[in-house]
Deep mutational scan, measured.
Amino acid sequence: KRPMNAFMVWSKIERRKIMEQSPDMHNAEISKRLGKRWKMLKDSEKIPFIREAERLRLKHMADYPDYK
């Protein structure tokens, strides 16, 4: 399994928030909203998620050195 990228790290957190607020919303609609919101974020707002994704990538490389 591949490590999460910055969007996936961010969307995992945000998806929970949306599901708590709107439990009946369909997954496809949540995904569309998340995509739009991610694109609207400033680069500076994405930095913590980019850093976390990089940390996960490095950990994945250490844990699975033969992964292609």
Rank of each mutant, 00 (worst) to 15 (best):
A62K: 11
K59P: 06
A62G: 13
K39W: 00
K68I: 13
D43W: 08
M25D: 02
I18D: 02
R15M: 10
S11N: 06
L56H: 09
K1S: 12
H26A: 14
P23H: 01
M61H: 11
N27P: 15
V9G: 03
L56G: 06
K59A: 13
K46M: 01
Q21P: 05
D66C: 08
M40R: 06
I13E: 11
D24G: 11
S22I: 04
L34C: 05
Y67I: 12
A62S: 14
K1A: 11
K32R: 11
K39M: 09
R15P: 00
R57S: 12
I47R: 09
I47S: 08
R51A: 11
M25S: 05
N27M: 07
S22P: 01
A62V: 10
D24Y: 07
G35N: 14
K46F: 00
M8D: 15
W38H: 01
G35Y: 14
N5V: 05
M19N: 06
I47A: 13
D43P: 13
R2N: 14
A28L: 09
I30K: 00
I30F: 02
N5Q: 01
R51I: 11
M40S: 13
K12E: 15
E20L: 08
A62L: 10
K59C: 11
I50D: 06
A62Q: 14
R2S: 13
Y64F: 11
W10P: 04
K42P: 13
Y67W: 14
S11R: 02
R15L: 05
W38F: 01
I13C: 06
I13K: 02
I50H: 12
A53V: 02
F49W: 08
S31D: 14
K59G: 14
A28G: 09
S44P: 02
A62R: 09
L56A: 06
I13P: 03
L34N: 01
E29R: 00
K17Q: 09
E54H: 03
H26R: 11
E54P: 00
K17H: 05
M8P: 04
D43T: 09
N27I: 06
W10V: 01
D66W: 01
H60F: 11
M19T: 11
R16D: 12
R2V: 14
P3K: 12
M25K: 04
M19Q: 09
I30C: 07
M8A: 14
E20G: 04
I30A: 05
M4Y: 08
N27C: 11
L41D: 01
E45V: 06
F49E: 01
K39D: 12
K46H: 02
A6F: 00
E45I: 07
K12Y: 05
K12D: 13
E29K: 07
V9D: 03
L34G: 04
M8Q: 15
M40D: 14
D66G: 12
N5W: 05
F7R: 05
L41E: 00
A6W: 00
W38E: 00
R51C: 07
K68F: 14
Q21F: 03
S11C: 06
I18V: 07
K42F: 03
L58E: 07
H60V: 12
M4K: 04
A62N: 14
P3I: 08
E52N: 01
R55F: 07
I13N: 06
I47M: 14
K39G: 11
A6S: 04
I18C: 02
H60Y: 12
R16L: 12
E54G: 02
G35W: 09
M8W: 05
N27L: 08
N5K: 00
E14G: 02
R15Q: 10
N5A: 05
K12F: 08
M4H: 06
N27V: 09
K46Y: 00
L58F: 07
K42E: 06
S22N: 14
G35L: 14
Y67M: 15
I18G: 02
E14P: 02
Q21N: 10
D43K: 09
K36F: 10
M61G: 13
R33I: 15
M25H: 03
D66R: 06
I50G: 04
R2H: 13
I30G: 03
I30Q: 01
R57I: 06
M40L: 13
S11K: 06
S31T: 13
D24L: 05
I47G: 08
D43F: 12
E54A: 06
S44H: 12
R2D: 14
R33Y: 14
Y67Q: 15
M19W: 02
I47L: 14
Q21H: 09
H26C: 15
K42H: 08
M4R: 01
K32F: 07
L58D: 14
K59M: 13
E45K: 03
I18Q: 01
M19C: 07
R16P: 11
M8H: 12
N27R: 07
E14S: 05
E54C: 06
L41H: 00
A53C: 02
A6M: 01
A28N: 08
F49N: 01
N5E: 09
H60A: 15
N27H: 14
I18N: 03
E52R: 02
S22G: 04
A6C: 03
S31K: 11
Y67F: 11
E20S: 07
R51M: 14
W10R: 00
K32I: 10
P65C: 12
R33K: 11
S22H: 13
L41I: 03
K68C: 15
A53N: 05
I50P: 03
M40Y: 06
M8K: 06
K59S: 12
E52Q: 00
K39I: 10
L56P: 00
R55P: 01
K39N: 12
A53Q: 03
R37C: 07
K68L: 03
H60T: 14
I18P: 03
M19D: 03
